[in-house]
């Protein structure tokens, strides 16, 4: 990763032009309609049974739509930083590596009950329909957030 120290401690430069929150675009009715559509889609997708064809289609559709938007008609993207502070990034890398190691050790042990994987812990939490739908909504919004990056 081509990173280097770019912001000394105390330097006021942050965000590099990226807005922390998106501006209102002047289309509240359209936004409300899209929001309602996403909530409805998440509710329907959350009702599908795992390992079913409907469940697969319910995640294929957002993937295809966002993929088409990302490469066919991308929205205005938030400016990304040209460089990252290597020290700051290292904190993330250490934590993510530790998380992967923790997950891999559970996976290696076949996710036994005495060392469950993250998936084994999260899946029961996602069983209730409202929780599953809310998680799908968060996933959809995260996907949109990534497309704007």
């Amino acid at each position: 990763m081509a990173t280097e120290d770019v912001r000394p401690a105390g330097h006021p430069l942050r965000r590099l032009g990226a807005r922390r929150w998106p501006r209102r675009n002047g289309h509240p009715a359209r936004d409300a309609l899209i929001g309602a559509g996403l909530v409805g889609y998440a509710w329907i997708a959350g009702s599908t049974a795992p390992f079913s064809g409907k469940a697969l289609v319910s995640v294929l559709i957002p993937g295809a739509v966002l993929g088409a938007i990302a490469y066919g008609r991308p929205p205005e993207r938030l400016p990304a930083p040209d460089k990252l502070d290597i020290t700051g990034v290292s904190y993330w890398l250490i934590c993510l590596a530790a998380g992967f190691e923790w997950e891999a050790s559970a996976f290696k042990d076949n996710s036994l009950s005495w060392h469950p994987s993250l998936t084994n812990l999260i899946n029961p939490l996602l069983d209730p329909h409202p929780v599953r739908s809310a998680a799908i909504l968060v996933w959809l919004l995260a996907g949109w957030g990534l497309v704007r990056r």
Partner: peptide, 16 residues
Amino acid sequence: RTSRIPTVGEWLGYLM
């Protein structure tokens, strides 16, 4: 504001 640690959005944006 004074942090050297990038946010998730910043390092994801960099990777993207």
